[in-house]
Every structure is written in structure tokens, then in C-alpha cells.
Amino acid sequence: EPEVDCISKGKARVRYEFGCKVSVATTLDEGFVVGMRSFPGTPYDGHTLRPALEQVTILTDQRPDLAVVDRGYRGHGEERPAC
């Protein structure tokens, strides 16, 4: 399929995954989905944070005060979730 990407994982048991990278933004307390976006190609996790936060800001008309992410997002210029 043309919309499926090969994502290199670099792990011994699972070297590749096939699909499309997506970002899902939820509220911290209730778990409501407030944003969902797909990213074609194989972008690095840290490079998907800003577009995901921008989408949440557009859809909810509020800027998030806190973004809880894993270690792949560290050090990519997002000091505060400002869009």
C-alpha cells in the first residue's frame, strides 16, 4: 500500500514496523481525545510534538499548560507547550 511506511525500530527482535506514525493527544485527568494526527514518512518523535500541540490549540482554542511525553521528545526546543 502506498500509504504504509516502513519504520525502522533498531531492536533485535523487531527491526521494522509497517504503518504510519500518529500522535494522539488526550486530557490528563479524563482521557478525552483532543487531537489526533498522522505523520507521513518516518519523522523522529521529537519533531512531531510541536505540530501535535498546534493542532490541540486550534481544535480546543486553548494552549496546553503541560505535555506528558516519553524520553524521545526531550531536547527538541519545546520548553513550554506554546504554539
Rank of each mutant, 00 (worst) to 15 (best):
V14T: 14
A25R: 04
R37C: 08
Q55I: 06
V34M: 06
A67V: 06
Y73V: 05
T60C: 09
L28K: 11
E54I: 07
G41L: 00
L66Y: 05
V14F: 12
G75T: 03
S8D: 11
V69Q: 00
V68G: 00
G77A: 11
C20W: 01
K9P: 00
G41K: 00
K21M: 11
F18D: 02
C20H: 03
D65W: 09
T48F: 02
E79Q: 12
G75M: 01
L59H: 10
R63S: 15
Y16E: 12
P64S: 02
D29A: 14
S38T: 14
R74W: 05
L66H: 07
L66I: 15
D29Y: 04
T60R: 05
V4H: 01
K11A: 11
G31L: 08
D65N: 10
L28Y: 11
Y73R: 04
H47V: 05
D61G: 11
V22K: 03
G77F: 05
P43H: 07
Y73M: 08
Y44F: 10
D45I: 02
E3A: 12
S8F: 05
T57Y: 08
T57M: 08
S38N: 09
Y73D: 02
R50S: 13
P64L: 02
E30Q: 14
G75F: 02
P51R: 04
V14A: 10
P51N: 09
Q62C: 11
L59Y: 04
E78M: 14
G72H: 03
T60G: 01
R37S: 08
H47E: 14
D29R: 12
V33W: 06
K9N: 13
E1H: 11
P2L: 02
E30D: 13
R50L: 15
T27L: 09
K21W: 02
K11H: 13
V24L: 15
G72C: 02
A67M: 03
Y44R: 09
G77I: 07
S23W: 00
G41H: 00
E1V: 10
T57K: 11
D61L: 08
G46C: 02
R74N: 04
A67Y: 01
Q62F: 14
L49E: 04
E30L: 14
E78D: 08
L66A: 04
E78C: 13
L59R: 10
R80I: 10
R80S: 11
Q62M: 13
R15Y: 07
E3G: 10
C83M: 09
E17W: 07
P64V: 01
E78P: 00
H47W: 05
K21V: 05
V69N: 01
R80A: 11
G77K: 12
D65K: 15
G75Q: 02
G19A: 03
T26H: 05
P40Y: 03
G46E: 03
V4M: 04
Y16H: 15
T48G: 00
R15V: 08
G75E: 05
D45W: 00
D5Y: 06
V34L: 06
R50G: 07
L66Q: 06
C83I: 09
P40G: 02
A52I: 02
F39W: 06
